[in-house]
Write a protein that binds this DNA or RNA. Structure first.
Length: 194
DNA sequence: TGATTGATGAGCT
DNA sequence: GCTCATCAATCAG
């Protein structure tokens, strides 16, 4: 049985949600066509005492989605690309889980055309890449991922054993790098970095 | 295969 | 102006 992850799933500490999201499927309804990929890499960003989190500086126009309800998308641009986070915990608790990499499942041809790349391993192996491959734009900032819409995350009962989840330090950031808040599937060929 | 570097834009101070 | 949770092209070995 396949079901959409609800707000209950996200309404927990990001350090619990991040590993649980591994193996789940991110689904994009793009002009009636379904594009999907299995989540193979995530990072947790805490609400408090986490200098690398966008919420560390307080609530601003840019990060206000982080303060919304669990299961809300926080799409932001860094350099010329977009990244997507899922808000966790409660309202006004600005923690999130960054989706860093996917394993392409459906509509791979559409991803190739959106990315302008042919190599399967170049499609979704990075937060900026996967947003482009799934046509996730800043229009999805604040989007509710817990209902059947244009963007949501489902559980198809794909089982991930605990030993296949690797926990390491986060990457690509300059602050609070010592915390081991990055999670990925051990044998996936689609993580953004070894 | 690994390391280096340039391009790119939005939002904060 | 400066930061930033990047990507991909390039070059050396």
């Amino acid at each position: 049985m396949t079901k959409i992850l609800t707000s209950d799933f996200y309404n927990r500490n990001p350090l619990l949600v991040a590993p649980d999201l591994l193996g789940k499927i991110l689904v994009r309804n793009f002009d009636g066509k379904i594009i999907s990929g299995r989540i193979v890499e995530t990072e947790a960003y805490l609400a408090f005492n986490d200098e690398a989190s966008h919420s560390f500086v307080g609530k601003t126009e840019r990060n206000k989605s982080l303060f919304g309800k669990p299961g809300t998308a926080y799409v932001h641009s860094i350099h010329m690309q977009n990244c997507i986070d899922v808000v966790t915990e409660g309202v006004n608790i600005p923690s999130s889980v960054l989706i860093r990499a996917l394993e392409p499942l459906e509509a791979i041809e559409i991803m190739k055309s959106l990315r302008g790349k042919e190599n399967l391993k170049d499609l979704t192996t990075g937060p900026g890449k996967l947003c482009k491959a799934l046509a996730i734009t800043k229009g999805f900032n604040g989007y509710d991922l817990t209902k059947l819409g244009d963007l949501y995350i489902i559980d198809d009962n794909y089982s991930v054993s605990e030993k296949d989840i690797i926990k390491v330090k986060r990457i690509g950031i300059s602050k609070a790098t010592e915390n081991e808040y990055r999670f990925y599937l051990k044998d996936s060929q689609f993580i953004s970095k070894k």
